[in-house]
Design a protein around this nucleic acid. Structure first.
Length: 713
DNA sequence: CTTGAGTTGGTTTTT
DNA sequence: CCAACTCAAG
């Protein structure tokens, strides 16, 4: 992604590459060639005689890990260094020391949906009301505790107020449920690993002994658990190299602790700190705006943005009436860019929430602009995919009740709620798993003969799947899909099931990809790998399509042309952040905008609308406070541009009122978007008359009378 | 036991 | 607005 970085390393980059022994913090601003520094450093370590086996590099996403592997390899660093995300590293450690971690190696990794079901179950089991104690809230609380490495028992011991006591019980039960199901959630992966490293001398000796050099990227987004893991890993050799940028910390809400990077120097008193302040990516105007914006944050480590590129085009800030007009306007500008020779790969559109992609997609489809929505987990969240995966999970982990309950009657096979309840009662009474109980269906007195037969057939199905679970994964996925009856039920659904069928085909090809890539295919490994799949992993930078993604997903990327849409109060900063009373949250939203802005190399286009439909309701919106912090002039002609070839009804019927009469200077007028204003100029040239209005918002606009829909007041 | 209509409630960002 | 849930009819 660092294509803009010059060939030669700069002095400070070289310094960061060549520093070998001892703790090192690289404070790297956006576009400073940080990735290059890390890969060069890996190569330099190996040049200096370090065995790749002794190097551990930790990245933020699988994508970044894959890229780093390739880049290090290209620099001549032979394979063998461990390069992965925190979570993948944890899975490997836990699998190796499964006994000590208290799981079986085929453990399931619970994603958000599985976690929700389980916590809800836990709340019910504890006889609490799920409306009073919302599952999502409880899950957040549990997650926060795990991120701080507070396990259920110690938390329970220390719980003194009412809510803590409730939470403690739910937390205990939740952990119990996961243990029964041989499952770990994302936070468990980190917590278990931290406990293994800190509590088991031999595990620690093994890993801290092996990794002589540990490199951690995006250190500003590490949470406390990750911090403790890192600390334990480098305890022996003390060769930690952390890189990051406090100004790009955007994951506070999921436990990231900015103090990890802010306090690095007090944490490691003999640390060397190198700042990479030169920016090789963006034009000076973009950097100036980014710098002015981020200067509004109080909690930061001061760092400059030093431009190295020649000046480029102005940043464009434009307004549209509504999100449809905004999307159309962007489509039009993309067409203009491609006409001028821009590649679609070099164009990206960022937004705050995923739901905003839809309007853009519709506009791009109409304009026939190829695009890709970067949202990887979406695919794995599809019903049909989750169903197939549930079958696969049960093959490696029959105790995974979340998976089992999901598909026991999918497709419908006459095993409804009543039957399942009876099986569960039997299972609990005999202290066996539901899957075991199904196998013993003939002993369950409460069941009819026909139901017993159906349960036996179900158990038999998995008997056969287990036998087929050898070698490559793809053929097994196919077998499961066909023999489970899922295939038939989708075929029976006709046109409705067509898309689902195609998705499953895609899943099978993805599995085949895995088979090709893996040294040794195993279903366990495959399932754990895709559980850790991230949104950005689905991004294909050479696809020849415009990239659409959230601001969060944009981290680490760069594009020649960047559009940031919906920069409005309530959206950015987002209303759910309580940014009114919580300064920290407001600052995080500002950093998010900062990240978006600094992805742009040459053209940056920021837009907001006057009206936006949110959850089906048309709302009046106001420009984000952040816009005024950029120190840029707002483009005043942006509305005209929007409307030029607009085919919206609302503009057409405005023609009558406009043609009715001329406007005198000083006339008070109302515009449906801008509100009240006073006419400062009027050029009467018949049909194409223009009127200049100074609006009460402070903006002055020149408008085509026939489109402006001005109302005399 | 299954299905579909109707209701309710929650509602950002993601490994 | 949408997903998850409830409940009654078949």
């Amino acid at each position: 992604m660092d294509s803009s970085t010059p060939q030669q390393l700069t002095p400070s980059q070289k310094q960061a590459v060549c520093h070998i022994e001892g703790p090192l913090l690289v404070l790297a601003g956006p576009g400073s060639g940080k990735t290059r520094v890390i890969t060069h450093r890996i190569a330099a370590l190996i040049d200096a005689g370090v065995r790749p086996y002794n190097i551990c590099a930790i990245t933020f996403t699988n994508k970044a890990a894959e890229e780093m592997r390739q880049r290090a390899f290209a620099l001549g660093a032979s394979a063998g260094a461990h390069i992965s995300t925190f979570h993948s590293l944890c899975v490997r450690i836990i699998r190796r020391y499964a006994d000590k971690a208290g799981v079986k190696s085929g453990f399931s990794i619970y994603d958000q949906a599985d976690q929700r079901r389980s916590i809800k179950q836990a709340i019910k089991d504890c006889r609490f009301d799920t409306t009073q104690f919302q599952p999502a809230r409880m899950l957040d609380a549990v997650s926060a505790l795990k991120n701080r490495l507070i396990d259920a028992e110690p938390f329970n011991d220390g719980a003194d107020d009412f809510f803590s006591k409730v939470l403690a019980q739910v937390y205990l039960r939740y952990q119990q449920l996961l243990a029964e199901r041989n499952a770990l959630d994302f936070d468990d992966l980190l917590m278990k690993t931290a406990f293994l490293l800190e509590g088991c001398a031999d595990v620690n000796a093994d890993l801290a002994g092996r990794f002589r050099f540990v490199l951690i990227d995006e250190y500003q987004d590490t949470n406390h658990a990750q911090y403790r893991i890192a600390k334990a890993l480098v305890a022996r050799h003390k060769n930690i190299c952390a890189t990051g940028d406090p100004d790009q910390s955007i994951y506070r809400w999921r436990g990231a602790d900015i103090h990890n990077i802010i306090d690095f120097e007090s944490d490691w008193p003999d640390a060397t700190v190198i700042k990479l302040e030169e920016n090789f990516r963006s034009t000076p105007n973009i950097l100036a705006a980014a710098d002015k914006l981020i200067a509004n944050n109080r909690k930061r480590k001061l760092k400059r943005l030093v431009p190295t590129r020649p000046p480029g085009p102005d940043i464009v800030i434009s307004a549209s009436d509504n999100e449809t007009a905004e999307a159309r306007s962007i489509a039009r500008q993309i067409e203009k860019l491609t006409d001028q020779g821009a590649a679609l790969n070099d164009i990206a559109v960022f937004y705050r929430v995923n739901s905003m992609s839809r309007t853009l997609e519709e506009a791009f489809i109409r304009a026939k602009i190829p695009y890709q929505v970067v949202r990887g987990v979406e695919f794995y969240n599809r019903k049909e995919i989750r169903d197939v995966l549930a079958y696969l999970k049960i093959i490696v982990n029959p105790e995974d009740e979340a998976a089992l309950l999901r598909i026991i009657n999918t497709p419908a096979r006459g095993l409804g709620k009543v039957t399942i309840d009876r099986v569960i009662v039997y299972a609990r009474a005999n202290r066996i798993s539901i899957f075991e109980a199904i196998k013993k269906a003939q002993h369950i007195a409460t069941l009819s003969t026909s139901v017993r037969g159906r349960l036996a057939a179900f158990a038999d199905l998995f008997e056969r799947f287990a036998k087929a679970n050898v070698g490559p994964v793809a053929p097994l996925v196919k077998t499961v899909f066909e023999h489970s009856g899922l295939s038939d039920s989708l075929l029976a659904a006709g046109a409705e099931g067509k898309e689902a069928l195609e998705n499953v085909d895609e899943l099978i090809s993805a599995a085949a990809d895995y088979d090709r890539r893996a040294d040794e295919s195993s279903l366990t490994d495959y399932l754990q790998e895709i559980s850790l799949f991230s949104d950005i992993d689905s991004y294909d930078p050479v696809a020849g399509r415009v990239a659409l993604m959230t601001l969060h997903a944009a981290k680490g990327l760069e594009f020649d042309n960047v559009f940031i849409v919906g920069v409005e109060e309530g959206l950015l900063p987002h209303e759910r952040t309580n940014s009114h009373d919580d300064l920290d949250e407001l600052e995080e939203e500002r950093r998010l905008f900062f990240v978006g802005i600094t992805r742009a190399k040459t053209n940056l286009h920021i837009s907001y609308t006057q009206y936006r439909t949110i959850r089906g309701q048309l709302l009046r919106t106001i420009p984000s406070q952040f816009l005024f912090e950029l120190g840029c002039r707002f483009q005043e002609d942006s509305f005209d541009d929007d409307r030029e070839d607009s085919d919206d009804r609302e503009y057409e019927d405005s023609a009558e009122s406009a043609s009715a009469a001329g406007f005198a200077v000083g006339q008070l007028v109302r515009h449906r978007s801008f509100g009240l204003g006073r006419v400062t100029d009027f050029v009467d040239v018949g049909e194409n008359s223009t009127v200049t209005v100074k609006f009460n918002t402070g903006q002055t606009k020149s408008l085509m009378l026939k489109y402006a829909n001005l109302e005399k007041v």
